[in-house]
Design a protein around this nucleic acid. Structure first.
Length: 537
RNA sequence: GGGCCGGUAGCUCAACGGCAGAGCAACUGACUCUUAAUCAGUUGGUUGGGGGUUCGAAUCCCCCCCGGCUCACCA
């Protein structure tokens, strides 16, 4: 964890770490990198004893622009209105659309162990008059703001443009209005039908005191105002904002030149790419966000996001790959190292921090958690596919002692994740399916000594006391018959897997056979041996 | 067009001025209850290309190639 600890070591004095988000819709997994980085920075600062507060803003006075999330008849009326004023479409008792969607990301953050000291709502700050001084300054210095836009972003606003949008007194929209005059107390604004493509203004014009929530600063100015209001010292931002001439450059310049305050330290971060492409559920590229959350538990997801340096793009391609099992393995390796168990291979720099920051609870008993027994994900995925396996008993046997409550919880979490993985991303080679219809084509590759042994096993299964009933019994019979014929155990097992699974390896064969009906097993053994199967009486 | 990130073993990545490494995969061997386990070992590299700085460059500088993201309207 070089990056967060280094960052924490590079700053002096109390720190205010901030981020904010527009509650316009659901949160997708790629967008969780920012909050994780934010949280890790705060934890790293606190680990050094730095007084730190972690803030998260809800930009709920931003205009509604997510058409897809509205009912068709609500689009004309709601598009362009402040999110805080749009009714909750879900109708589940939230005061507004903004409250509803903000709640989903607050819940998501909490699920990832991210608990800001305070959530603040821009609609509240505007209503309370907290933003008014910045509105006044921005209007007084509108020419300076326009100059910044020209210089920094090469954006040429009209000479009468002002960095403020009034909530229209007639139609209540904020996304459609433009301010063209400021007399020191009131602004003149127009609600234009065609100012933006995604919402239609009503044509109203008026003169209004733009304070107390009746108007909203432009995005870049609102950002800079937040910094001044809260004394923000560190604020990460995604590459979409951190690009040259982008929002962050503009907000930085506005902070310095208009609000006369040094902007916070930026920690630009890259995104999460799925298979080399930006994760996008809407385009059908990559993977739906909610699926990943089901397959990757919170602590592994934190690890995924915090292990690389923020400015490094994360390539994550869970589909048909071992990326997810590897993520679990890496987590377990870090746990082993933290617990003082021997670990193969190299460890990342500052691996203790990487593990500690991956945990949900910042106050967690790191040593105790690291020492806990964790079943390997790939192994668990295998066990989940074998019928009749008592997973709890099996894992407990592997540990060699009763599982603690924490270990049981980990096992449950991983078993669920393994099931979800097998149902979605797992490569075919990770899936075990007994081919019940017919002998797999791959069984043609069986050698004559293997076929002879399969016939022998089939015969042995029928005499003298009927087929084995347990995995142990099958396993014993497999070894006994193979030894009789002088067949190496490895070749015997390979023959079984080819006959039943169509592949040269598989799960513990005795238990696999025990999970199937004996008649089917015998029939298949004979078929694979080259004997007629159906005709056996 | 501007910006950012990346290109190192088959895959995922580390090394950030001092002998190019790990995990996984592959391959070899061991193991009579093991068969995706465990253990031991092996293979695998012109660090995208070219120049420069340096006693020494994957690492720093310049140019180029490739891949990706992002901005340029709004937030």
């Amino acid at each position: 964890m070089d990056w967060a600890d280094e960052l924490a070591a590079s700053v002096d004095g109390p720190q205010v770490v901030n981020d904010s988000k527009t509650p316009s819709g659901t949160v997708h997994v790629g967008s969780l990198r920012g909050p994780v980085i934010l949280d890790v920075i705060a934890r790293a600062l606190r680990a050094r004893g730095t007084t730190t507060s972690l803030l998260y803003g809800v930009d709920d006075l931003d205009p509604m622009d997510a058409q897809a999330l509205l009912t068709p008849d609500a689009i004309e009326h709601e598009m362009g209105r402040p999110l805080a004023h749009v009714p909750d479409q879900a109708g589940d008792c939230h005061a507004s659309y903004a409250r509803h969607h903000a709640q989903t990301f607050i819940d998501t953050f909490a699920g990832l162990g991210i608990h800001p000291d305070r959530y603040y709502w821009m609609s509240d700050l505007y209503a309370a008059g907290t933003v008014d001084p910045y509105i006044r300054t921005a209007l007084d210095r509108a020419e300076a703001v326009r100059a910044i836009y020209r210089r920094v972003a090469n954006v040429q606003h009209p000479a009468d443009w002002h960095p403020l949008q009034v909530v229209c007194e007639s139609c209540a929209k904020v996304g459609t209005t433009i301010v063209t005059r400021w007399d020191g107390e009131r602004v003149f604004y127009e609600c234009r039908p065609n100012l933006v493509t995604w919402a239609r203004g009503c044509g109203h014009a008026g003169l209004v005191r733009p304070f107390g929530g009746r108007a909203k600063l432009g995005w870049n100015l609102e950002w800079a105002a937040q910094w001044s209001i809260f004394g923000v010292t560190i604020e990460p931002s995604g590459k979409d904002l951190s690009t040259a001439g982008g929002s962050r450059d503009r907000a930085d310049a506005i902070a310095r030149e208009v609000f006369e305050r040094e902007p916070p330290l930026n920690v630009p971060y890259e995104f999460l790419n799925i298979g080399g492409r930006k994760m996008s559920t809407s385009k059908g590229l990559g993977v739906a966000a909610h699926e990943i959350v089901r397959v990757v538990p919170p602590e592994q997801l934190r690890l995924l996001f915090l292990r690389p340096r923020p400015q490094t793009a994360i390539e994550f391609d869970p589909s048909g790959s071992d990326a997810i099992p590897r993520l679990f393995d890496e987590f377990d390796r870090l746990a082993d190292a933290t617990a003082g168990r021997p670990v193969r291979g190299e460890l990342p720099a500052g691996h203790e921090s990487v593990f500690r920051y991956s945990l949900l609870d910042p106050q967690a008993d790191v040593a105790g958690i690291a020492a806990a027994f964790r079943p390997a994900f790939g192994h668990l995925a295998l066990l989940r596919q074998i019928p009749g396996v008592d997973i709890d008993a099996r894992i407990e046997a592997e540990k060699g002692a009763p599982l603690t409550p924490l270990e049981v919880a980990t096992l449950r979490e991983r078993a669920a994740a393994a099931d979800a993985w097998l149902a979605t991303f797992a490569p075919d080679k990770a899936r075990i399916a007994v081919n019940r219809e017919r002998l797999p084509d791959e069984a043609e590759a069986l050698a004559s000594d293997q076929r002879a042994w399969l016939a022998r096993l089939a015969a042995a299964a029928l005499d003298p006391n009927g087929p084995p009933r347990s995995g142990d019994a099958w396993q014993a019979l497999i070894f006994a018959t193979a030894t009789d014929l002088g067949l190496a155990a490895g070749r015997a097992f390979a023959a079984l897997y080819l006959a039943f699974l169509g592949r040269p390896n598989g799960p513990r064969a005795g238990w696999l056979l025990a999970s199937l009906e004996a008649s089917f097993v015998v029939e298949r053994l004979r078929a694979a041996a080259g004997e007629p199967g159906k005709e056996t009486s």
